[in-house]
Simulated assay, not measured.
Amino acid sequence: MTAGAGIFITSLVLGAAYWAVWCYRNKGRAGLLVKTGSVALLAVWAFLMGGPVLLVAALALSAVGDAFLAGKAERWLLPGMAAFFLAHAAYVPLFWQLGEGGWTWPVKAGQAALVVGGVLFARWLLPSVEPKMRVPVLLYTAVILMMGAAALALPGAYWLATLGALMFIASDVILSFLLFRHPKDGPANIPASLAVWGLYFGGQVLIALGVTGNLAA
């Protein structure tokens, strides 16, 4: 087994362990290390596979965001959102470059549907967001919609990356519901928490595989 394969498998094992044990309850130090390590190792793997700098940067920034969001939302939500904002900001030019020439009418229709859906969701969500967080939420919504629109324009060979990007967006939709619409004193929503991590981590894995796999072909 090569070093790269070992790192990739370790990343998957950590991601699965976090999904099964920690994502729906108090993280603790062990949960923090497992959560952050899963995506950090994915960034290391992408680097070893010769992945683009923007891909490695997006994964590394996501790992930083994971570390922040493993803490209490009252203190670490804004830094976590900032790290993920930068991660999406790295994905946007990466997907634009890889999708050059892919702006067909079906793609434009899909992008329009994504943006309209995102705007409607933000309008529904915003009244539940405390005033100081509304601008960050709007900025984050804008950048993730840009990321999704760019991913939809990727050529068919990059379908894994496109699927991964859409899974990432779905994860953030569910997470925003848990953060801003779910009663703070209500019981934990275990199915939603499982879906958030499964879609997010699975999406990151598919993005990494989709991009690096095509560059190696």
Rank of each mutant, 00 (worst) to 15 (best):
K108Q: 15
S176D: 07
W45K: 07
G65C: 05
R123Q: 14
A112R: 04
V53K: 13
A208M: 00
Y91H: 11
L166S: 10
G37M: 11
G148Q: 04
D172S: 00
P127V: 12
I174M: 09
S11D: 06
R123I: 13
D66L: 08
L166H: 01
M133N: 09
F84D: 07
W103N: 12
D66V: 05
A60N: 12
L215D: 05
V196S: 06
L12F: 02
L14W: 04
V211K: 00
L126K: 14
L32Y: 13
A57Y: 13
L138T: 09
A151R: 05
T162R: 14
F180E: 00
V34I: 15
F84Q: 03
L120Q: 10
F47G: 12
I144F: 13
R29F: 15
P187C: 06
A82C: 06
L61E: 04
G101K: 11
G50Q: 02
Y91A: 11
G31H: 02
F201K: 05
A192D: 00
L160N: 11
G28I: 10
L32E: 08
L41Q: 01
T212I: 02
F121R: 15
L61I: 04
W105C: 03
A153H: 01
M146A: 15
L194W: 08
A109L: 10
V39M: 10
F85E: 10
F95Q: 06
L114S: 06
L48P: 04
M147I: 12
Y91W: 08
I190Q: 07
H182E: 07
M1S: 15
T212S: 04
T2N: 15
G186I: 01
L145M: 15
G28R: 13
N26F: 14
A150Q: 09
F180Y: 11
S193A: 15
A170P: 01
L175E: 01
L55E: 02
Q97V: 09
